[in-house]
Write a protein that binds this DNA or RNA. Sequence first.
DNA 1: AACCGGATTCAAAGCGCTTTGAAGCACTGC
DNA 2: GCAGTGCTTCAAAGCGCTTTGAATCCGGTT
Lengths: 376, 376
Amino acid sequence: MPPRRSAFDGQCFPCLGLPTELKAYCVPHHMNLKQLSKTLGLSQTTVSRALNGYPEVSAATRIRIEKAARDHNYTPNIRARSLATGQALAIGHVIPVATRNEIMNPVFADFISGAATTYSKHGYELLLSLVEDGDEEATYRKLKSRASVDGVMIHSPQMVDPRVSLLKEIGLPFAVHGRVSTLETPYCWLDVNNRAAFRRATDYLLDLGHRRIALINGIETQDFAYQRRSGFQDAMAARGLPIDPALMRANEMTEEIGYRAIREMLALPRPPTAVMTSSMITAIGTRRGIEDAGLIMGRDVSVLTHDDELSYFQNGGETPIFTSTRSSVREAGRRLAEHLIYHINHPDDPPPQELLDADLRVGKSTGPVPATRIAS
Amino acid sequence: MPPRRSAFDGQCFPCLGLPTELKAYCVPHHMNLKQLSKTLGLSQTTVSRALNGYPEVSAATRIRIEKAARDHNYTPNIRARSLATGQALAIGHVIPVATRNEIMNPVFADFISGAATTYSKHGYELLLSLVEDGDEEATYRKLKSRASVDGVMIHSPQMVDPRVSLLKEIGLPFAVHGRVSTLETPYCWLDVNNRAAFRRATDYLLDLGHRRIALINGIETQDFAYQRRSGFQDAMAARGLPIDPALMRANEMTEEIGYRAIREMLALPRPPTAVMTSSMITAIGTRRGIEDAGLIMGRDVSVLTHDDELSYFQNGGETPIFTSTRSSVREAGRRLAEHLIYHINHPDDPPPQELLDADLRVGKSTGPVPATRIAS
DNA sequence: AACCGGATTCAAAGCGCTTTGAAGCACTGC
DNA sequence: GCAGTGCTTCAAAGCGCTTTGAATCCGGTT
């Protein structure tokens, strides 16, 4: 049996701590609309309208109200507002806490900090739900039935992703960071043109004379990883070149994995002359592997990576270290958040979709095939 | 001028998309209390009480109500509830997004996922605010005046931390993960006994015969780092041993920093025989540095680290790799969240405080001073 | 002088829930 | 037969806000 609580009644936290006989002295420190309008000698309607920017308030009154609001440090109680409007003014991010905690994926961190910028610009809050594997569905349902959020953001979409149909079923608006390629129906997404970007990047390496090109990819049930491999394959196929399975990896994108992969590949009878990786972090491991093998990146082995422009893993300054397909994940967060909010507020419009182009940016990590290997 | 919105009126998102003439057919999919009690032929009062576990409901009625709630998938609208109770049922985490984004600090990730467990157990939500440096104060004030949260969690407390007095001033309950040692007044915190742990750990190394012990610490404006250094110094001083400033570092706790630090120290005329680090991540870098120098960890150089039991950086299995002072940061998150919620609901009680003991766990990374160096 | 219409302002209803204070009910004991 | 007593249940008020529909004001017309 939970303890019984009485309503807030205007008392602030410090006052709640006062002995009972003194509580009467607690004048609410936090102005509410009723107080404010009484102070001003106006109705709540007028004050509310003035502060929300509606036109039917005279200029003089508006100025007076705005000043008073500032002076008394008034901010509308968001819970009350959302009850009245039916909007939660919050966006949910549901993160599975598997063995590998998605929350400290640096891509996630940058994306979310971009999205947060947009949220706060529009007065939305960010609700973070960390859930054990398997509780995800229940969490989405609860978010909906409690009316905790107006919509949710979907991270790391898979090739086949059950979340999309679930959310459509329960009627919770959502936006996908990436895409679910297997899906036909329209939904809100923002993605990088991974396939085209990797095709172009592969072409770039091919033009430099490389033929044995390795791909150290992310796990290929993830949509983006699948797309990148397709782009890679497209480019190779277009020139009628075979792909050596020994030069293809699909795994988590850690430094260590990048290191091991390149070490193993360099130990092959016919090692690659160029490597493409799906993440800066893997690329950094790759560089370490190349150096540890006594080779020089950009001369002996070329490295081309996708660069999410993570704030934590900058790709050099003016002259980038790694040649890369480049697209800011933070910017993606900002933009997709705009789309989601638009989608929430315009349910009748077709859901916003956006495909960003990743530009190819040449750095110091790529160069022509070393003369010694041209034969191979 | 913002678009005008009408209240929710029971329509769900898919129905909002229907052409106007069909909207009337939208029976609210999401049961609310009024509907539910009408269905049951009971008053809202009774239903509410039954579901909230109050005693004044007959057993038979309660069972009937609970069944109906389950059948209709009813969950109370959390916004309405919190308006009525005056509780927000949410906890805020305010994270500064500086150049180095705190959000992807693995310690933060584990702590927050521990805390989230507790939150959801108690029906609280987790509100994440990412703020630019300098906007922190404004954010806390806004959280308070909008009544968005019942309390906030303070991460990475500094030796002198302005957040504590700010929160006391605005009357927002808080809990500190760590402590602010300079502070006298009582507040809610949970900390590891860093000083004692590092003193004991140092003693352990001293007992193994080590005399030249290095400390690769976190930035020492952070309270925990200061405490650890104090513990280290205490132990050295207690045996009348001098500390070589060349063996003390205080920096971010990355792998790279650990690597560089040990490489530099091993290049000294009198290199250390043992190293203490403040984080597993630094320790991993240290190990790499030792190996790259052609030495063997645990034989040539001992390494002792603090182990937060991060899910992402496990310290081996049954037989740990690193000897460590050990305390689960995830467990800390769980417990401190309990404390914060208690504190919020019992403002008259003294704020909960807890000091966890970090146990010393012997692994393979430490051993007696190598014979060749005993002389030094 | 009465009337009109646009510009302002307002009182009241309602969002979905909790909680207060009171009422209904079936017994018990006198 | 009636007040007294628990045990259940209820109607209504209120949380702080938005929004509807109506009222008021005021200068300009008729």
